[in-house]
């Protein structure tokens, strides 16, 4: 009742179509479905070696051929989608939550808390993003847990900055004043009143962040720091196919295209969300 903008924005978006949102969701939906249904789509085990049919060209048996250990590339591509999408979405959750919370607190209270949070974000932002991630993963030891930890340490700063700015401007709005006058607790004001109004920004940002994280995971795996073999992952598929680039180009190229398509669909979704949720 004291959040008028919720119903306002709903009214504003009604009837506004976003093709990019539709295309993005469609693309992603197909990929997610394929990833989930992987065991039914393909009869092969993504880890099973078949050393008698290595580096087979695409055929009806192996849609995209086999790799240097005789594993079906199409199968590995699908199972890799499971892992990479899970890591991408999963690794966004922690930074999203911590960043949003810290940003909200900093923006709402200001003062020393704000100073501390802003100093921390400035400090982390002073380093190039990937350099920091690679350094962290390297020192923590390669593997999926390291990727989550590194992302959690580094990626929250963007959310904190976005939310802090939004909260800062919302703090002076009438509905917040009203809530304060009514004697609501700070927690209730932040969670029930302010966050619903500013959350679209970090959500939209999260869409593009997922892309960054997936590319990051793929990059780390490519560098031998990410998903350890034999677990299928697009990055390690690209890396291991590299030495066959001149003869079996599809081994590296196809997982590369998969990364591009996933990145594109998330970007389209992010774009569409911005478009739809933007207040008039």
């Amino acid at each position: 009742m004291t959040t008028p903008s919720r119903s306002e924005s709903r009214k504003a978006v009604r009837g506004r179509r976003s093709y990019s949102l539709m295309i993005g969701t469609g693309l992603l939906g197909v990929i997610v479905l394929a990833a989930i249904l992987a065991p039914w789509i393909t009869p092969y085990d993504p880890l099973a070696h078949d050393l008698d049919t290595i580096l087979a060209p695409p055929s009806s048996d192996h849609l995209l051929g086999t790799d240097h250990l005789g594993r079906d590339v199409w199968t590995r591509l699908l199972y890799a989608a499971r892992l990479d999408l899970l890591i991408g979405v999963g690794a966004v959750i922690t930074p999203f939550l911590t960043g949003t919370l810290l940003g909200a607190v900093a923006g709402y209270y200001g003062g020393r808390i704000d100073l501390a949070v802003s100093a921390a974000t400035d400090m982390l932002m002073a380093f190039p993003y990937y350099v920091l991630i690679i350094a962290l993963v390297f020192s923590l030891g390669p593997g999926i847990p390291s990727i989550f930890i590194a992302m959690a340490i580094v990626a929250w700063v963007s959310y904190a900055r976005i939310v802090r700015g939004e909260v800062l401007s919302a703090r002076g709005q009438q509905y917040v004043m009203a809530a304060k006058t009514l004697g609501y607790t700070d927690l209730r004001i932040i969670v029930r009143h302010i966050l619903p109004n500013v959350i679209t920004q970090p959500v939209t940002y999260a869409m593009s962040d997922i892309v960054v994280i997936i590319v990051g995971v793929v990059t780390l795996s490519y560098l031998g720091l990410g998903v350890p073999p034999p677990t299928p992952d697009w990055g390690s598929m690209i890396a291991s196919g590299q030495s066959f680039m001149t003869t079996q180009w599809q081994l590296s190229t196809i997982p590369g295209i998969a990364v591009v398509i996933v990145g594109l669909s998330f970007s389209l979704i992010g774009d569409g969300l911005t478009h739809r949720l933007r207040p008039e």
Binding site: L47, A48, H49, L51, H68, L69, P142, G224, P228, P229, P230, S240, S243
Partner: peptide, 28 residues
Amino acid sequence: GDQSPNLPIVEIIQGQLAPLGIDISIRT
């Protein structure tokens, strides 16, 4: 060591040891 042809050989061994319950993780 990450150079040809080491890694594929180690990956094959990883597969050959799995049935024994020996779980190999590869550190390049």
